[in-house]
Nucleic acid binder design. Sequence first.
DNA 1: TCGGCAACCTACTCGTGCGTAACCCTACGC
DNA 2: GCGTAGGGTTACGCACGAGTAGGTTGCCGA
Lengths: 215, 215
Amino acid sequence: MLARMSTPPTFRRLPRAVRERQMLDSALKVFSRRGFHAASVDEIAEDAGISKPMVYAYLGTKEELFLACLRREVDRLMEAVARVVEPELPPDEQLWRGLRAFFGFVGAHRDGWLMLYRQARGQEPFAGETAAMRARIVVVVAGMLGRALHAEGREVRDTELEAVAYALVGATESLADWLAEHPDADPDKTANQMMNLAWLGAGQLLRGEVWRPSP
Amino acid sequence: MLARMSTPPTFRRLPRAVRERQMLDSALKVFSRRGFHAASVDEIAEDAGISKPMVYAYLGTKEELFLACLRREVDRLMEAVARVVEPELPPDEQLWRGLRAFFGFVGAHRDGWLMLYRQARGQEPFAGETAAMRARIVVVVAGMLGRALHAEGREVRDTELEAVAYALVGATESLADWLAEHPDADPDKTANQMMNLAWLGAGQLLRGEVWRPSP
DNA sequence: TCGGCAACCTACTCGTGCGTAACCCTACGC
DNA sequence: GCGTAGGGTTACGCACGAGTAGGTTGCCGA
């Protein structure tokens, strides 16, 4: 049985680099849906169209595979944002471009976003990786806000600034999550909504206006 | 070896209700740190000071145990918020009280928050449970904003309102997460910051002010 | 005081899934 | 044409952990 079909090289031997990409693609697909523990290396190998020992030969243990996959997504996301945010631009334009790139990435790479946001947090060996990424982003956002306010002649305490940045990053992630679950939604429109909330809301807040507890 | 110590009833037999509480407490502790899959029923049983078959006898399978644990935390959180948010209050006062209760809960029940936020999302059998809770909260927040704006004579499209509510819930969660990792921080102060961001930011935004893409 | 129920245990079975040993086969350089 | 390196496989060892069978002990009411 299984006599050779008329096209012998249907199951081609492929160079290592190509196979590694395929494996990482499959790993992303499976890990992002199931999470680290519920995913099995067998399933990833099958999805990639090769057998399990190849995965171990090329990418190492399951943990290393998850990390390689995670790092690739972190790099893709950071690179997509960094490419459009030029340092000479005014802060609001930087934020706007960054948000567009971010939501664009989430819209185009649902799995990558789920990997970063849903799976890599909490699971202990990997939580630090995303936490570090988040921290970098928070610092960048806080910097933008700080510079924008400085340009208007206002100074705000760093801890205050960082808390606002933290909240804005969270709001952005939340909308990204919403976007990931509404594939027909428009990333640019979402970016616009977030930009409004960030620029008007945080700006006015940091400018000194406050809501008073007892009316 | 291990001859009976001088205090025979040190390891007391306890009524079922008490044991179940202890088990759920231990389950929360272990699940919130390790996640569903990495946690073992043996570890939970050991932490609770009993043996594994007791867990199965009282709370059922591992999945049912996780669900019972999760539902208890959902109920606690919702109850803590519902207790202070009286429907007759003006919307801003409702939001303020709700935020205080929420951050208070997170500060006092770190594990409960991690269970809800980090572990129960993404892991497939349970994701729906927290998603439903989130959805309820988003609707409530959107309702508050809508009523507040209505009182000022403004109407905003429901989708717009929901997106803003989604972002605010995300911002709140993000600050809660920050709070959970800074045990010395003050929940009330965090609630105040979030209140400012929500009330000033979202309010002004929904009132019609926009940031324009090209300056 | 004595049955019996309910709390609790030890000691298994058995499936699942990571990681590997030991092999095959084809293309390409020489 | 032939050896070898590298792409590929099957089939297994082995550990860990969910879930259970079956027994033991203490408490409480009649």
